[in-house]
Design a protein around this nucleic acid. Structure first.
Lengths: 247, 247
DNA sequence: CGGCCGGTTGACAATGGTCAACAAGCGTGG
DNA sequence: CCACGCTTGTTGACCATTGTCAACCGGCCG
């Protein structure tokens, strides 16, 4: 919750020093919505931002609640989910550093969300951010492009949920984590899996037992190795891709 | 394929007469992206549009193809789908009059699509439409809002695919058609189901047999009545809502 | 008339769910 | 310091929902 820096309204570009420390140190500046902005605009954006540290299971949004904030994930992970009246749960997505929470919404949040492990967020009051959109068309363009990417991902997930077997689902999931790791410049053959078996099950439309059994089978066949601290080693990504039934 | 009308570039608003006939007669003008525009802008938009008549199963886009057109559905219906290498298919959505095809894409289409029954489309060259976005921020805003709504729908569909039973899926589907009919000002208790059992199955993550059996069961229990011409009567929407397990 | 397509129904199989027991890790408090 | 209980993950036995395979029906079109 450290913020507040005077906003420059001059015409010249601000120097990077005008940015609050949290932004200057931010490791996802080149990924997040911020990437669409020049320094002056970023100073303005940082002026409406506040920062939050969360722990595992800390709630962020609640389905049906009035949506007055949107967020950038800067560290850790976030899960989005929806519930049926009887308690069945579907995780609709995991967010990692650089991802944006709050594209899909009307007046109210259409999903609940919570932190997965220790997580840091950058929070924006929605009204103020929307006001900035009028003056920063490139920000709006960026949001549209992010929404488009999210839709493509959502369609892939529908294919997975509707048509893949348990083993294919799990391999697709691991492959997806691997691709995301690669896009962040990390080693794609060692993925961090910070979420629980039941989170994974609720994401893939399976029970924890089925997830666990399939992890064991993949382990036995040598497709994966479970390491310390929720790390998973994928020695043969091509093999995982075949098992995921992806082109 | 009838189009081509001179584009007015003056500052004053164009009279509605400047619009091509296809637009003036268009029944979804107030729903489609066009709703965001004034008459002058609509004249410009209509200048880049062309019109297409399609029959059942006529292809519109193909997954992986370079995406150089986007579309508005003006009559009939369209289905979007993705395939696995071995031929399993997932329908990711149905589009009805007023819906827009082409928000979710990068350089290439991320899904295939085809007409369901006799269908009319309004086609825009993507490059030209994108160029117009720069001059019409309210159009961009409208696309962002449509993308947001599509994402919310996609999340609902993930909940359905991952966590609902066959009967709940089918009732949710019928209820959804009913809601859409209502939003078009039609009777919500009689829905038009133009797609085949196998289309429905591929949309709900079921086989045609399971869809058929569940239709029969709902019919036997008096929840639905199958009428002529793919119409379905839902005498008690509240009952359908309960069976769909929706709040 | 005949063949094809879409839809329905039946018999059976299999994938994944349910219920239960158990093991391992961890924090708390006696 | 260890015992206890709680949570998470794993495994087993059994079951049920849904898928598979096949037959059949009716309508439509050549």
């Amino acid at each position: 919750m450290d913020t507040a820096v005077p906003i420059s309204t001059g015409d010249k570009l601000c120097a990077p020093e005008c940015l609050p420390e949290s932004c200057r140190n931010c490791s996802v500046r080149h990924l997040a919505i911020c990437a669409a902005l020049n320094t002056t605009e970023m100073v303005e954006l940082s002026g409406i931002a506040s920062f939050q540290e969360l722990q595992n299971h800390d709630p962020i949004t609640s389905e049906g609640e009035v949506a007055d904030s949107v967020f950038n994930v800067t560290a850790g992970a976030v899960e989005l989910y929806k519930l049926l009246p009887d308690g069945r749960r579907q995780v609709t997505g995991f967010l990692f550093p650089g991802d944006f929470l709050g594209i899909a919404m009307n007046e109210r949040y259409s999903y609940s969300s919570e932190a997965v492990g220790n997580t840091r967020l950058c929070r924006f009051p929605r009204k103020k951010l929307e006001a900035m959109l009028d003056r920063m068309p490139q920000l709006e363009r960026r949001l549209l492009s992010m929404a488009s990417n999210e839709l493509i991902q959502a369609q892939d997930q529908m294919l997975l949920l509707g048509r893949k077997t348990a083993k294919e689902k799990l391999c697709s999931f691991l492959l997806n984590l691997s691709k995301r790791a690669a896009s962040r410049g990390e080693d794609p053959s060692v993925v961090h899996v910070p979420m629980s078996r039941s989170d994974i099950g609720d994401y893939l439309g399976l029970t924890t037992e089925t997830v666990s059994r399939n992890f064991t089978q993949l382990k036995t066949k040598g497709v994966i190795r479970l390491l310390e601290g929720g790390m998973v080693h994928l020695p043969d990504l091509e093999r995982v891709r075949e098992l995921a039934e992806e082109a």
